[in-house]
């Protein structure tokens, strides 16, 4: 029963991910005085891509065709282990936060290989930059995760949420720093402004788009969808770890309704905050990434140190 619930929840997560992406885009358009596309536009795009015949270059190997599936499956799997509206699910036991980071890395491994597979300069450039961002973002992300894990004495997401709920609303300096660090990492890892621009196709600036430039049809759809899942995943992580109140602790209809309402509300707020920051800041030069991500690492490190110094005992 519990396993079934978590499968249903994961399916719901995946299905809602394009909506969240559409919401972010909608808010951003309004903020920039443009006419927004309808909220369901990402669904239409995906549907169109799934119905198209993909084209594959003559130099491609099987890696090129396998990569979208790996990327998509890792994203789905990650969505499965992160508590969405219900705190206690058996899937959270299968893999913890560190495995989650590992799964992101696995998806990235294949995507960067796919970027190199055709032997074009664009793909290589995107892969190379993506690996630089990953190398700098991963320690910052794990440092933030460790702060949380050491506070809650667990890397299991359900247990960590439980711990936050039980200890109540306390202002912990370590959590504030870790939250800030994780937000910066999330921006970098999901390819948003100021690190990458999901809307650009200008050669010199793109990272993610450069890697997937050669994809079309259902392969592109899988990658786009995986990206939307990943974006929402960071939103859910931030919302549920740092502000878990409202999440369903049992499977009663009332709790479930409250759980879904609260997570959707939190995501809606995050979906406004992200476009605001994207509108306020301009994209950075590639070789200022290390400053941005170094700052994220520093914040996470401060979080860790303040936990060790201020909060133990």
């Amino acid at each position: 029963m519990n396993w079934l619930t978590s499968i249903v929840e994961t399916a719901l997560f995946i299905l809602l991910a394009p909506l969240f992406a559409g919401w972010v885009k909608w808010v951003k358009c309004l903020l920039q005085n443009r006419r927004p596309p309808p909220l369901v536009q990402p669904y239409r795009d995906l549907a169109k891509l799934f119905r198209k015949r993909p084209m594959i270059a003559d130099t491609a190997s099987w890696i090129f065709e396998a990569a979208p599936f790996v990327v998509f499956v890792t994203a789905v799997f990650a969505a499965g282990i992160v508590p969405f509206a219900i705190a206690h699910l058996p899937t959270a036991k299968v893999a913890d936060l560190i495995v989650l980071v590992g799964f992101f890395a696995l998806g990235r491994f294949f995507l960067t290989l796919a970027g190199l597979d055709l032997g074009t300069a664009f793909g290589g450039m995107g892969s190379s930059r993506e690996m630089m961002i990953a190398s700098l973002a991963e320690p910052a992300m794990l440092m933030a995760v460790f702060t949380l894990a050491m506070s809650a004495a667990t890397t299991n997401l359900s247990q960590a949420i439980d711990w936050v709920l039980q200890t109540g609303l306390v202002l912990r300096p370590s959590f504030v720093f870790a939250l800030a660090g994780l937000m910066l990492v999330g921006i970098a890892e999901t390819g948003r402004i100021p690190v990458d621009n999901p809307a650009t196709h200008l050669e010199l600036t793109m990272v993610h788009e450069a890697m997937v430039l050669e994809y079309s049809g259902r392969y592109l759809a899988l990658i786009e969808w995986a990206n939307q899942i990943k974006l929402m995943l960071y939103g859910v992580l931030i919302a549920n770890i740092f502000l878990p109140w409202g999440i369903a602790e049992s499977l009663t209809p009332r709790d479930l309704a409250l759980g879904f309402a609260s997570i959707i509300g939190k995501l809606a707020v995050l979906g406004i905050a992200l476009p605001i920051s994207e509108t306020l800041f301009a994209k950075m030069r590639v070789f200022r990434y290390q400053e941005f991500l170094g700052f994220a690492y520093l914040l996470s490190l401060l979080g860790m140190l303040s936990h060790v110094i201020l909060e133990v005992n």
Binding site: V101, A105, R108, F109, T112, L113, G115, L116, D117, G124, S127, M131, M132, A134, S135, L136, A137, E138, P139, A140, M141, L142, M143, F146, M150, Y297, S300, L301, M304, V308
Partner: peptide, 23 residues
Amino acid sequence: PVAAALLAFTGAVTAAAFVKAYG
């Protein structure tokens, strides 16, 4: 924990090195 975060960095750079070797 700082050592552990550096281990995470190591993991990411190793992945980059082997993406390069293979790619």
